[in-house]
């Protein structure tokens, strides 16, 4: 399988990327790790006339702790996240999730920015970003803006990113004391997208839940922000009754598409199971 012909650009500065996007409009596609885009181009589901490779843009790389946030360059790869001592210390949830994405080779190339920008409900980072209350820095001809994860995912392959914009950075507030987090993913085999998965971040204070966020993967047209499920935990000890209630509220917002991984009923039930698993695990990790 060979992609349609296209012209290749590999600028080394962000302003040049933005200028090329401006010039070629919807004829152009950004290329990050290429592990969603190239398979689609090989299958001819995508056929951009211009491919703008971000690999030489050094400013899109790197991980830093700044202003109480972990700031991650959009071109940071999954394996770079997994190998990062800084991420392991401050946002271990991200390491746990990245380890469950695809397979080792894909993780050497696939980037966090690409995984989020793609807008695929099967991708794992979007739900994790919702649970972590992350924000994304988008740069375009008009300058920079910051969009919250909760406002970013609009539909399948549809995000709040405007034409001509590039995602440059992912900002994750470092979870405070009393926080526990977990990502529970059901998949059939290594390298598979989730049948259903749940990302949970819990904050406990004096034995009761003071804050909670839950994101769901691959059980709707986008990653889902299970807001009501998270609200149901507030003020509880996150005991089995509260966990069952949260899972039921999460299942109530699922609208999965039936495919070889299962029918709607099965996937919804599995989303409930993943919420329960992630909540128990997150609670056991509170510190």
């Amino acid at each position: 399988m060979i992609p349609r012909p296209f012209e290749y650009h590999a600028p080394s500065a962000l302003p040049d990327v933005i200028a090329l996007l401006d010039k070629y409009g919807d004829e152009a596609k950004l290329l990050a790790g290429g592990h969603s885009l190239l398979p689609m181009m090989k299958l001819r589901f995508a056929g951009p006339a211009h491919v703008i490779d971000l690999r030489k843009v050094a400013s899109l790389k790197g991980i830093a702790l700044e202003g109480g946030e972990i700031r991650i360059g959009a071109m940071t790869t999954e394996n770079e996240l997994i190998f990062s001592a800084l991420v392991a210390e401050h946002v271990p949830l991200l390491v746990e999730a990245a380890r469950q994405i695809a397979d080792p080779q894909v993780r050497y190339k696939g980037t966090i920015g690409g995984d989020i920008s793609h807008g695929d409900p099967g991708n794992d980072h979007p739900a994790v970003m919702l649970a972590l209350d992350a924000a994304f820095v988008l740069a375009g001809a008009g300058g920079e803006r910051v969009v919250q994860a909760a406002d970013f995912f609009l539909g399948t392959f549809e995000t709040a990113m405007a034409p001509g914009e590039v995602m440059t950075q992912i900002r994750i507030p470092v979870p405070g004391p009393g926080t526990g987090a977990a990502y529970a993913k059901l998949k059939r085999k290594t390298g598979d997208y989730a049948t259903a998965a749940a990302a949970v971040v819990l904050r406990m204070k004096d034995g009761t839940c003071a804050a909670a966020r839950i994101g769901l993967t691959n059980v709707g047209p986008t990653a889902l922000n299970a807001h009501d499920a998270a609200q149901a935990l507030l003020g509880t000890a996150v005991d089995e009754a509260a966990i069952a209630q949260a899972a039921a509220k999460a299942m109530a917002i699922c609208e999965p598409a039936a495919d070889l991984r299962g029918d709607e009923e099965y996937k919804t039930a599995m989303a409930g199971q993943m919420v329960e698993r992630a909540l128990r695990l997150a609670l056991s990790r509170v510190k």
């Binding site: 590999a10 290329l31 290429g34 190239l38 190339k109």
Partner: peptide
């Protein structure tokens, strides 16, 4: 899943 032009 890599373009040769990416390998310069």
């Amino acid at each position: 899943t890599v373009l040769t032009v990416q390998c310069d």
